[in-house]
């Protein structure tokens, strides 16, 4: 899976350059995210602006990424298409994830708060 990534301070922005994160590609996605976390990246913005469909397996891998970060890390998501936003809403994951409209907004939020405070903010 082609993933573009860059650093903004101590925040890693990850942008999957694929149309779909689904049962066929989710394992590849998860492996890449685990590599980022094992590399010491604990503040991650996942920019899904290139992705126009995520299925339950893909969502599961995003959940897995959040769990892998644990209390010491934060994950913000941005750039959701209408269909991907629908998935987060249908599964009520929109209440659990920190979702932003843009990379800038997500990076701004992660810059201003401590990791452990993110999910209770």
């Amino acid at each position: 899976m082609e993933m573009h990534s860059w650093k903004s301070g101590d925040i890693l922005v990850v942008q999957p350059r694929v149309k779909r994160i689904d049962s066929a590609s989710a394992t590849d996605f998860k492996g890449t995210m685990v590599d980022f976390i094992n590399g010491g990246n604990m503040k991650i913005v996942l920019d899904l602006s290139c992705v126009d469909f995520v299925d339950s397996t893909g969502l599961g891998m995003i959940v897995s990424t959040l769990k892998s970060l644990g209390q010491d890390g934060v994950l913000a998501i941005c750039g959701l298409s209408d269909i991907v936003q629908s998935l987060f809403t249908l599964t009520r994951m929109s209440r659990i994830f920190d979702i932003f409209a843009s990379v800038d907004e997500a990076v701004g939020k992660l810059t201003e708060i401590e990791p452990h405070a993110m999910h209770s903010a």
Partner: peptide, 9 residues
């Protein structure tokens, strides 16, 4: 968070 399913959704 600790009850979020990674599969079966």
């Amino acid at each position: 968070s600790d009850a979020m399913p990674e599969s079966g959704m």
